[in-house]
Write a protein that binds this DNA or RNA. Structure first.
Lengths: 142, 142
DNA sequence: TCAACAGTTTAGAATTATTATAATGTAGTT
DNA sequence: AACTACATTATAATAATTCTAAACTGTTGA
């Protein structure tokens, strides 16, 4: 597994010890074509499938938060009841499919630049994020 | 209290029984100049201050959800750990003050119309919402 | 007006997501 | 190999929310 070395290197760069669990988690999160959106629950499932040994729930939380603090992951607020995370940490917008609860990244080109006219004195803008909620076209209103 | 009658009327219109608790809640939520943003916790506090009798936590949840289903309230997702609700149910955008955890409505004119170029086949757009996160300008990075 | 019923409220238990704790284990350094 | 600081773990604790079942109350219609 030469890819592991990569992750070990990367983890070191941001000052995180490349422990078994962290490297394993990197593999699940970043060894994929597209960016990955998940809840803690999704991740726990994937990890326990992939790993030979079991991983503690607390470790998954700790590690996800360590990654978030170091800029490896970004938290997305969609549903007040679950935390979604995104392996794409750059500023970008999302589609949220209300039928499947799937989160889809927008490319830079999908949404025109947002122009904020309002200024709040003494406050600076940290981020501007758009969430487009979509649902099946022929769905009966629930 | 002639205003009560108004709320009783309005509750009936959407098919909700105008019970003591619901009318009381309407007063707290809608007898104000500006739109009101709150968490369930905020609301429970306000209600228990205002009311002579105590109100059950479960009732607050039930009633808020009843109001939401009937279009009296709108849920806003900002923080994955708390549900925020908004008495302004029209489509509009928000500023979120990360220092004070306060939510501020945007006027129509504050943000230019958002142009979504991306189409997802078989899906229709339900809503487009912008969240602008702001924080103190001279704050040391946490 | 009042009985009856359906919808409401209530307290408390249950559930779910998350965080804290404290003991044990392990990566990195010597 | 041994030391030390940081990680991991199982479990307990906490927080937000929902469920349950019994008691209560608007509304309807006799």
């Amino acid at each position: 597994m030469p890819k592991n070395c990569n992750f070990i290197e990367k983890l070191r760069e941001v000052g995180l010890r490349p422990t078994k669990q962290r490297v394993e988690m990197c593999e699940v999160l970043y060894n994929r074509e597209k960016t990955f959106h998940f809840t803690i629950n999704d991740l726990v499932k994937l990890l326990s499938e992939k790993m030979n040994q079991k991983i503690s729930l607390a470790t998954v939380y700790n590690t996800v938060h360590a990654f978030e603090k170091k800029g490896y992951l970004k938290e997305i607020s969609i549903d007040s009841h679950k935390s979604y995370f995104d392996t794409n940490t750059s500023a970008h917008h999302h589609f949220f499919d209300e039928d499947t609860h799937e989160l889809i990244d927008c490319d830079e080109s999908d949404i025109d630049k947002i122009n904020i006219r309002k200024k709040i004195t003494g406050k600076k803008i940290n981020s501007v994020e758009v969430l487009v909620r979509v649902a099946s076209d022929n769905q009966t209103q629930k």
